[in-house]
Structures are given as C-alpha cells and as structure tokens.
C-alpha cells in the first residue's frame, strides 16, 4: 500500500494545470466536474487511471485530468484503450468520446470493444453535432436537421447510441445528462465497478452549434414528464407525482404504452417492472427506442449483466498454457523439429 492509495483523493487532485479550452457554457465542463468528483470515490490511485480519447471537443478531456492520458486519433480510442487494458489489466482505463468519434469514424472499434467485453469504460458525450469542425450534422443528429453541411436538412437516419451498444451486446449500458451531476456521478461509479466494458451515453449541450438540443428533456419544468428514471427492480413510473407509467399492451403484449395510475382502472400492478439484469437485453432494447413526444426518455442503467471479461480470459489463457506446457524455453524452441549439426 503506497501512501497514495491510502490517502483519500479529492476532486482537486484530478485537476491539471492546463487551461480548459471548451467554449464558455459548454456541457463538457459539467461532465468534467462530475468525473473529477466521482473518481476519488473509486479508491484507485491516480497513476492507475488512464483516459484515452480520439478527436473532437470531448476528446480534449484527457488533458484536463491529472491521470495518465492519451489524446489519440479520430475514432480509434477504443482500440488504443484495448491495447492498454490488455497490456496491464490493473489499470482503470476510460475512453472519452463523442457522437462523431464513436459512432461515425470509430463505429467499428466501439462495437468490437463492447462485443469483447474488455474492461474499458466508454463515456460518449452526445451533443448531436460536430463541434470541433464547426457545425456539421452528426450520426446522432435528427433527420431533417439543417446544419453547415445540410442547408436543406439532413436526409440521414440517426443512430440511437443505446440501441447500438445493446446491439453490440455491451454488458453495461447507461444514459445520463450533463446537467444532472448527481445522477451522472452515480452512473459513472457503477460503470467503474462493472466487470467488463461499460458504455455511458451522456446528453451534452453544445451551446455554440446545437444549443438546446436536449432542452425539451432537461428543462426544469418539463423534465419530470420527459425523463423516465429507470432502476433495476422498480416499476417504470414518471411524472411529478409518479402517477404515469409504462405498461406493455398491444395484441402480442409487446407494445409499450404510457398509462396513468387511477385512470381506466390502471394500478401499479399493471406497470412494467424494470429488469436491468435480464440476459437477452430485450427489455433494455425496447426502452432504448423510447423517444419524445410519445414516450419519456429513459435515464439510468439499461443493462448490467455478467459475461466473460476479455483481458481476464486472455491472461488466464496464458497462465493455463504455461501450467499445461511449462514456462516456454526459447532455446529449446529454436532447436525443436528437424535439426542437424555441421562439424
């Protein structure tokens, strides 16, 4: 035990001497603060934490964290983080990424990292726009969006990051919001504690190029009706007095609908109880499709299940083979097979 491990760190310990260069008012500031507040609670010394990023506004993140950091190239952070984690499973490895970085240029690395379930924590700052390149539509921008590169409106159908992560069989999938620091902090701590890959989408306001993208969800007067806080084992209720809820209906019983307690004989027993540990991920996927105005936006942990963890399996395999065949002897290897001597 080094002193660093026993001394309780604070938010300040994770701040660097670098001037933060995001636009004033950017949602990234709030996310940075939440992360810096959450990390001391993990009990991991700073030298064992690594932040890896790609390119984009969010990818400046490592420069502001007093940990090890790697600001890499566009979209490749999950690949680089995979190498770091595989090389040293003892490290707590985080990826800070954005919607363009993770879902456009780096989509392949994202899904494969999640599929492998390598123990890296991916925090995706979703602002539904390209900020650093000054305002082009992104893979999460809504169809019809007018941007610098789509003056007549985008004709692209967007990705839903949670659905993508679930489709890639991620074992931990969550969503939070830049302006909900307490919630975000809790989600990040749970992501850190999870064995294997964790994927956290954070709604982030880009006040310069896409201001108010999430206002209809995060505004003080609307959020109770527009956000559905999901928690394992709890009924899916929302609204000011938790009077509204989600029920499964339709002919097959697979169609979700918003109902009100006390109206048309609806009671709490009719409300769907959320199961984040459900193996198939079907309920999580169903919830990931919820969009306003028909449905509130689910916030919280969508999926939290156990599966073999890549770096553990890889290292155990090495140990198993060593045990079975003994520690490798290089000279013996070089001299194996057909050899002959020349005198």
């Amino acid at each position: 035990m080094t002193t660093q491990e026993t001394v309780k760190l604070t938010r300040k310990d994770f701040q660097t001497d670098q001037e933060v260069r995001w636009c004033p008012g950017c949602g990234d500031y709030a996310i940075l603060a939440s992360v810096q507040r959450a990390l001391p609670n993990l009990g991991v010394p700073r030298e064992k934490i690594v932040f890896v990023s790609g390119i984009g506004c969010s990818s400046r993140f490592p420069y502001y964290m007093e940990t090890y950091g790697f600001h890499s190239i566009h979209g490749r952070a999950p690949a680089i983080a995979t190498g770091i984690k595989l090389a040293n499973p003892d490290l707590s490895v985080w990826v800070a990424t954005g919607d363009g970085d993770a879902l456009s240029i780096g989509g392949n690395h994202l899904i494969h990292a999640l599929r492998r379930n390598i123990g890296i924590k991916i925090v995706l700052f979703n602002n539904r726009i390209y900020g650093l390149t000054k305002g082009q539509y992104s893979p999460t921008s809504e169809q019809g969006k007018k941007t610098k590169s789509t003056p007549f409106g985008s004709v692209d159908h967007p990705f839903n990051p949670i659905s993508v992560a679930l489709g890639a069989e991620a074992t931990f999938v969550a969503r939070s919001i830049d302006v909900e620091p307490k919630h975000l902090g809790q989600v990040l701590e749970r992501a850190a504690a999870h064995q294997g890959s964790a994927f956290v989408e954070v709604y982030q306001n880009c006040n310069v190029f896409n201001d108010g993208a999430f206002e209809s969800i995060t505004g003080k007067d609307v959020k109770a009706d527009q956000q559905l806080h999901i928690e394992h084992g709890m009924p899916l209720l929302f609204g000011k007095d938790k009077k509204r809820g989600i029920r499964l209906g339709g002919v097959q019983g697979l169609t979700p609908e918003v109902v009100e307690l006390g109206v048309n004989g609806v009671t709490e027993k009719d409300i769907l109880v959320f199961d984040a540990h459900e193996q198939s991920g079907a309920m999580a996927f169903l919830l990931s499709r919820f969009q306003p105005p028909e449905f509130p936006v689910p916030i919280g942990v969508f999926r939290d299940v156990k599966r073999d963890v890549y770096e553990q399996e890889a290292h155990q395999q090495i140990e198993r083979v060593k045990k079975q065949f003994g520690e490798g002897d290089i000279q013996a290897l070089l001299e194996s097979g057909e050899t002959w001597s020349i005198e």
Binding site: T82, N108, H112, Q324
Partner: peptide, 21 residues
C-alpha cells in the same frame, strides 16, 4: 507459454491502435 500476447483485431487500424496502446 512464453507470455506472448497476440491480439487479432477487428481491422488493421484497431490492430495498430491496440499495439500503440
């Protein structure tokens, strides 16, 4: 048994990315 890690990546870029990591 020599402690070598091999990583078959999802593509060429990930292969070098993980290697740089």
């Amino acid at each position: 048994s020599f402690g070598v890690s091999t990583f078959q990546a999802e593509d060429e870029i990930a292969a070098i990315g993980a290697t740089i990591g």
